[in-house]
Nucleic acid binder design. Structure first.
Length: 107
DNA sequence: AGATTGACTGCAT
DNA sequence: CATGCAGCCAATC
């Protein structure tokens, strides 16, 4: 892998419980040039990992659709378990749950 | 080696 | 607020 996927996982691990981050934020923190690579790293993420990949959402504040339908539904369940509230169709209130990277990681 | 795709983003309409 | 188009890098075909 040319892209430091472990770095991405490290950033995702830093996400406090009850908050979410966008691929762009993670990509920037991980030093990646393209947010798409974040998705690739998460795709290669082993399930035995303790990385809260479910806290990673797209810029619109909604869960991204993966290739196999149904997997994204699991993410929503996990987010609700974290205490995150969804809007009508499955969108998250960013103003409330957006994670502030290395600027005051409060929990 | 060239073309296509992919867990995306940002700005314009 | 939803939709459309372009940019981006790496992996895969």
């Amino acid at each position: 892998m040319r892209i430091p996927d472990e770095k991405v996982w490290a950033v995702v691990r830093r996400i406090p419980r009850g908050k979410v981050a966008t691929y762009g934020q993670i990509a920037r923190l991980a030093g990646l040039s393209n947010p798409r690579h974040v998705g690739k790293a998460l795709k290669a993420l082993p399930e035995e990992s303790d990385v809260p990949w479910h806290r990673v959402v797209n810029a619109r504040g909604e869960v991204s659709e993966r290739r196999p339908p149904g997997w994204d539904d699991l993410q929503r369940i996990l987010l609700e378990a974290e205490g995150i509230e969804f809007r009508g169709k499955g969108r998250i209130s960013f103003d409330r749950y957006r994670w502030k990277p290395e600027g005051g990681e409060e929990e």
